[in-house]
Design a protein around this nucleic acid. Sequence first.
DNA 1: CTGAAAGCGCTAACAC
DNA 2: GTGTTAGCGCTTTCAG
Lengths: 358, 358
Amino acid sequence: MSSKENGSGKRAPAAGSPRTPGRAHPVTLREVAEAAGVSTATVSLVVNKKKDARIAEETRQRVEDAIRTLGYRPNAMAKTLVSGTSRFIGLVADGVATTPFAGQIIHGAQDEAWKHGYALLIANTEGNGELEQDAIQMMLEYKVRGILYSTWFHRQTDIPAPLREADFVLVNCFSAEPGARAVVPDEIQGGRSATEILLRHGHHRIAFINATIPAPAKDGRLLGYREALEEAGIPFDPELVMEAYPDQEGGYRATGELLKHGATAVYCYNDRMAMGLYDGLREHGLSIPDDIAVVGFDNQEVIAAHLRPPLSTVALPHYELGVAGVRMLLGLDSPAEAVAKMHCPAVERTSVRAPAHA
Amino acid sequence: MSSKENGSGKRAPAAGSPRTPGRAHPVTLREVAEAAGVSTATVSLVVNKKKDARIAEETRQRVEDAIRTLGYRPNAMAKTLVSGTSRFIGLVADGVATTPFAGQIIHGAQDEAWKHGYALLIANTEGNGELEQDAIQMMLEYKVRGILYSTWFHRQTDIPAPLREADFVLVNCFSAEPGARAVVPDEIQGGRSATEILLRHGHHRIAFINATIPAPAKDGRLLGYREALEEAGIPFDPELVMEAYPDQEGGYRATGELLKHGATAVYCYNDRMAMGLYDGLREHGLSIPDDIAVVGFDNQEVIAAHLRPPLSTVALPHYELGVAGVRMLLGLDSPAEAVAKMHCPAVERTSVRAPAHA
DNA sequence: CTGAAAGCGCTAACAC
DNA sequence: GTGTTAGCGCTTTCAG
């Protein structure tokens, strides 16, 4: 964290601030105490609404009036200094920017943290290791309650050394180290759910366009597909599984291969591939869902909800990942596994219908 | 900020932490001083690398060794308490979640803040006024250097009362109050740029599908369109301007109307509408860009870069908004206007070509 | 029921 | 060159 600064420190010339009328220095506890004619201890007690402290109703009134008229606001830094640990939870992310998803992790973490009186201190590292170290150091210096270390796509990760000095949990990633707490999406169940959407509509020849890129998602989503098939008593046909680069172009290019094997339905590794596939299918004069049913994965809102027809898919529970991350950090839930797998809910839209000949 | 807590406060049972071996309490400055056989003042001086303090090289070494072996880490809270203001910049957003864009604002703000030694304290309010108040209060209590108040889409906003107690700047929004500092995208220039892409390719009959929803973007993008036309000496034809709900469905439904007026090119209020329009045009057997050229607005990556053909559009400078916001807050740039308009750069892809008969 | 006083970890005069 | 000391604003025994 470099430090150079030339700011004026001046306030914006906004309309007269209602509270601190002309005061340069913020109001302190002591000042409130003097104004109310009590000691700082007493003020502290009423400010913090200590249950066991018996304050005369009359005194409390006097103090509260003083607080109001002076516009007193507690200094969280001083509080923290005394208590030794702040009400901050750090969130280190490798990409808030890169993806619409990271935002949801932040959102979930923030909501849950807030609920328990914590604020989020965030650092976006965009994959820069040095920055990451610095960010963690900084959080440590601010005495954060703990750190959420998150990645924008589900993957294995190394635990940066300084992270160990804090209470931490990995979010959307996991470590090879046993015992390292983590929360990740349940890719297998997600793959099962995606396949089941199709199965439920009566499809038997279901193709799966997997990603070419190795990742827990690649393995998990395939495994889920196989499990669902097996449970439905449908033999696994390797011909129906193909691979493509996991974006629109990949999906588009996979169209030809897909059409060779007489599938009546296809489950795509992600929504972006499904989007490309839509174009490819259309060019072949095929209509969705009448000629072929499609499901995606990720529930990437901008895409899935607005394709024609809207895409049935399985959602990656990013918001829940954030929530679960802070709950685990704070030790709010019963002590289950070290790594929690979050459910990926199916979200059905209209890209699936029973096969024509069924 | 409610406060209830039952966390265990235990650390994750990770591998032995390298630094603080078994220590319950973090290492303090005083301890380093004792270990090095110097006073706390001296340690403070070397820790902060004070230029003017003359420390004997030998002493400095001794101190640095002590720091290293003890694994000392400064307590930022104590520092802040002394100095009166923290190295935090608050960022209040009404929707990190709702959109892929907000992430970019955060990203820009964080990068720039970090560059100047500040960390970001963020609060997502999702439009909840009470939460917003609380968030600002909290930031005030943590003595933030200032607050960035941002909205996920460009609009006018009211300044929440507590915000006035801080140094603040509005990001992606603005206030009716004169003097309130703000940074917003330059919609007019953006509209001009979008239109100019089409003009440059030789189009004369350029339709504009505007949004139905009132917003600075609606007015600005239209105005930019008119300016570009005028500058090109092309008379404004009201028939070529239509309105639709600003999403895929809106764009799709606008197709029929669009086709009535012999436009060879169309500029859409946003990329989502363009996406819908692509489908509509395709159903009419029209091809892009041969039969009709299309440009969007927003540069919503997932969409624009991956439509077939990839969509030429104008980017909303969210990252830059974040950067400019902290620069303005910190008073880093020359004292220009109270509200800065950020440039919206054209990003050309392949959805535009010269008109057929040209 | 309330006040006095001792710090939390660090910085900044001001001595020596 | 380096040590002493007085707080920063607050919480928390411990007296009374």
